[in-house]
Amino acid sequence: MDWMVWTLPSALFFATIALMLVGMTIWEVVQPSTFRRGLLPLKTTRGDRLFIALLSSAWFHLGWLGLTDQPVWYMTIFCVIWLAAVLRWG
């Protein structure tokens, strides 16, 4: 494992993603999700919305880093809210 040069932040990041996947799987088993049309312009399931939210968050971060000099965690906070919003209303 040493060659993978782990750091605490990246470990936390991947742990969060893994937990999300586990959580989504359990949620799906307990209560299967249905296709639905929300604010996003296409029909999605819960998993689709999570993916869309994560991918767009990554792009928001890139945009933030590329265009501003502000600390990155401003964007991270916004993205957490964004993630919840997309999951709920997307």
Binding site: W3, M4, V5, W6, T7, P9, S10, F13, F14
Partner: peptide
């Protein structure tokens, strides 16, 4: 991919 992420922040 995980390794690439680790590299990229150090």
């Amino acid at each position: 991919l995980m390794t690439v992420v680790n590299y990229s922040i150090q």
